[in-house]
Simulated scan of single mutants.
Amino acid sequence: MKNMLFFALILTFTACKTNSKAIEKETFRGDVTMEIHEIMTDSISIRALDYANGDYWYSGNDGKYGRIHAATGAIKKFQLTSMEARKMEYRSIAVTEHYTYLLSAGNPALIYKITQATDEVKLVYTELGDQVFYDSMKFWNDQEGIAFGDPTVDCLSIIKTIDGGETWTKSKCTDLPKFIKGEAAFAASNSNISIYKDNVWVVTGGAAARVLHSKDRGSTWDSYPTPIIAGGEMTGIYAIDFTDNKHGVLIGGDWNNKEDNLANKAISFDGGKNWKLMDAENGPGYCSDIVFIPETNGKEILAVGSQGIWWSGSQGEDWKKLTDQGFYTLKMINDKEGVLAGHFNVSKFILK
């Protein structure tokens, strides 16, 4: 959301019935604790993480980005060279087998393509306009990718590439769900897009908290309401994750009232058509990221925000707070380890 640049630089309906059977709700592990080990500090705010080929990649403000070897912790730091590039925050990142893509939040929107083998950097997309603000980006493979952002005309912004980012096409408003005035999205964690096979889901906030879903990699779209809090400039959905084509989770809340946990997280068992609110009694309030923990058959969930980190082993029916230490985003590579990023900090974590 455009105003996130101002509000978050220092960080930066009723439940519906479900139509398909949930994964069996047994706890995968009886209990979980978390060890956090700082691996990097830098004077940047990091809201974008991805992983491929044994490396975590991150990006932040001042044109800075880098890669962290998952096994050794070795770090390579980079910085974009042009003054225009260094003015922007890079809150979206996508890593494929051979390339890494960075997308800026704000005007202008800039996409850089990095060849991993040589570290060569190429500017492949520029979009100008007072309302331009992209929030998240994902790639299915080396050729096909998608990015999502705030409206610039009468619909939300979706751009796609089918040639490895060399060219991008912006979807026409006639091909997208009808726009709700005041609806936008949040560049809080590069997590308001989730992809699985040909599916892509994107989530919104502000005046509405909706899920937009495409079964054909962004050619056609449907939209679904959610019970997540909406109506305020900083309310809505901040992150979404699907573990298959049926089971999804989302989280957000009210950035101005971070303790409120009544209508900020939900789960779907039918591909995002219907959403059920998760437990609020001991669950997290506002969070900027959420994931299904890999290799747990959709049973375990991690939620991350500036107020701490929470774990659920029961698909959100109950929660345990693991730490008060706050982060903006995370990436897991198996059921035990991953990386967290936030303000001036990147840390490795292990679940036990």
Rank of each mutant, 00 (worst) to 15 (best):
A8R: 15
F13A: 11
I23F: 10
T27K: 15
G30W: 03
T33M: 11
I44W: 01
D50L: 10
G60A: 11
G63R: 09
R67M: 10
I68A: 05
A70V: 02
L80F: 15
K87S: 10
L102Q: 06
T118M: 02
V124Q: 09
Y125P: 02
G129Q: 07
D130V: 11
Y134T: 02
M137Y: 03
Q143H: 08
L156G: 05
K160T: 12
K170D: 07
K170P: 07
D175H: 10
L176S: 03
I180Q: 12
I180K: 13
A184S: 15
N190S: 04
K197Q: 14
W201Y: 11
G206C: 05
A208G: 02
A209N: 00
L212P: 05
S223G: 05
T226R: 07
I229V: 15
A230F: 00
E233G: 03
I237F: 03
Y238F: 15
D241F: 00
F242W: 08
T243E: 10
T243I: 15
V249D: 04
L250E: 09
I251T: 15
N256Y: 05
A263C: 08
F269V: 09
E281H: 12
G285V: 01
I290L: 02
E295T: 02
N297P: 02
I301F: 01
L302T: 05
G313H: 09
E317A: 14
G326H: 09
M332G: 04
I333S: 07
H343F: 14
V346S: 06
F349L: 01
L351F: 12
